[in-house]
């Protein structure tokens, strides 16, 4: 077990002449929850898509648990769980069918697959929804299925793109609790627009603006300085 689960070096991405993301250097330790903040269009989603192998970087390298994502994508991706902004759900499947498919896709062996399914459902509060069609579930439950899909194979790095959007306050609290739990054994990257969410659940915060990281501190450091996250955010991104 390596302590560093995810590291990137000088990660860049251009779309034509437009630079979406430049020189991102990330180091993530096991048991750390990183909050990624930034105004719309700051490059958060682009960064996450690169970290999960959905988008090839223009320059730079990504290592997941010491495995180079660009050279050995399949081995590296096995350590990764990803919930995109819009949860990738097959509406015609039941929750169980979908999660089993996700588990097989992540190469879980047959004997493990059913315990993993039960475990993921239990963690996301989906125990009694197994036989429901995904299309009949409410937004909050669909979001939970999305998270269950990302954690079913017990990945070392979990990347969640705005996991609490569209949820009611109770569901939000539950998801936050879940993220905290996940952060004990794995590393979590969480992008969000809700500053209090970061203050509550993250160990470290990075703020992105116009494609670069403009702020990177642990929550403890921030508290010592006595500055609020909101002040920092407004200062840096306006």
């Amino acid at each position: 077990m390596t302590a560093t689960t995810l590291s990137t070096q000088n990660l860049c991405r251009n779309y034509g002449s437009h630079i979406a993301v430049r020189d991102i250097n990330l180091q993530l330790q096991r048991g750390e929850v990183l909050g990624l903040l930034g105004p719309n269009g700051a490059g958060k989603t682009t960064t996450m898509r690169m970290l999960t192998g959905n988008l090839a970087p223009s320059a730079g390298s990504i290592e997941i648990c010491g495995i180079d994502l660009l050279n050995k994508p399949q081995e590296a991706k096995a350590h990764l769980g990803f919930l995109p902004e819009i949860p990738p759900l097959y509406q015609d499947m039941t929750v169980d069918e979908f999660l089993l498919f996700a588990a097989r896709l992540h190469r879980l062996s047959k004997p493990k697959i059913h315990t993993a399914l039960g475990d993921a459902k239990q963690r996301c509060g989906l125990e009694d929804r197994g036989r429901h069609l995904i299309s009949t579930l409410s937004k909050g439950f669909q979001q939970r299925v999305g998270i269950a899909q990302a954690i079913i194979h017990n990945p070392d790095v979990i990347i969640l793109d705005e996991p609490t959007v569209g949820l009611d306050p109770n569901q939000m609290r539950e998801i936050r609790k879940l993220v905290r739990e996940l952060g004990v054994s794995s590393s979590v990257i969480l992008s969000t627009h809700i500053l209090s969410e970061v203050e509550n659940i993250c160990d470290r915060v990075q703020i992105m603006h116009k494609g670069s990281v403009v702020f990177d501190q642990t929550m403890a450091e921030l508290q010592q300085q006595g500055t609020s996250l909101e002040m920092v955010f407004t200062q840096l991104t306006q």
């Binding site: 999960t52 959905n54 991706k77 990738p88």
Partner: peptide, 11 residues
């Protein structure tokens, strides 16, 4: 349906 992302991020 944005499910291509699921396949692309899988090993």
């Amino acid at each position: 349906n944005h499910t291509l992302t699921l396949l692309m991020s899988a090993p």
